[in-house]
Amino acid sequence: MEKTMKLEIFRYRPDQEDQPRFQTYEVPFREDWVVLDAINYIKDEIDGTLSYRWSCRMGVCGSCGMMVNGIPKLTCATFLKDYYPDKIRVEPLTGFPVQRDLVIVMDDFIHKLREIKPWIIRREGEEKPIEGGEYLQTPAELEQYKQYSMCINCMLCYAACPVYALDNTFVGPAAIALAQRYNMDSRDQGRDQRQEIIASHEGIWECTFVGECSVVCPKAVDPAGAIQRSKVSSTIDWYKEVLIPWGGKKR
């Protein structure tokens, strides 16, 4: 007989139901299937009304983050075999409003992304013309920020963050890591502008360094590390400004 597995899936349609509920589906168990394959099987073969986001199914588009047995996971990179034969519980990422079924509302993150100015900022008159060629950047300089540039915006770190769960004014792990990605880029001169957001009360000081964000990150971005580095450099800024005003000119 074919092996099967049960998935208990969070269902909620705001225009039709007052309360979320769980619905259990039985799917074939295959060694090489990921949780997303099982969910696609449900959508195609059992219940067309289930809504969720997905696209690349190779861990790079960042669409398919969900809670799998209470842990934030990319479902395209989470294998059924690691749970078999137990039932798997699939829910939308925690810490976000639910739009429908497994689809979260991520407006807040999109807003914060823009806030931290995730683009190269050059001082007035210091932009290099295209004819001047590329900015030189050594492999060592690239290494300074490379890790923070690997974020796929999958939102797992927000779902894991205990601070964001209590206070969604917190800028949060991925956005801070991204700010740090530009701050550490040798081509960028915009750190001061970003620090206004990052070092504010909604920013890095709220992080209690639980480090859950870095644990769940599927791309080893280490947002917790970015937050710590950001704290250290902000503190140095403060010392420079207050204690040594003549040397306190920020770069």
Binding site: I120, E134, P139, L142, R187
Partner: peptide
């Protein structure tokens, strides 16, 4: 080439040679 350099100026993390060139 100018489009690629433009993207470099916008921050694309191109892999580099030891001298810093793309």
């Amino acid at each position: 080439p100018s489009e690629m350099i433009q993207l470099e100026h916008w921050g694309c993390p191109w892999s580099r040679e030891p001298n810093g060139k793309v």
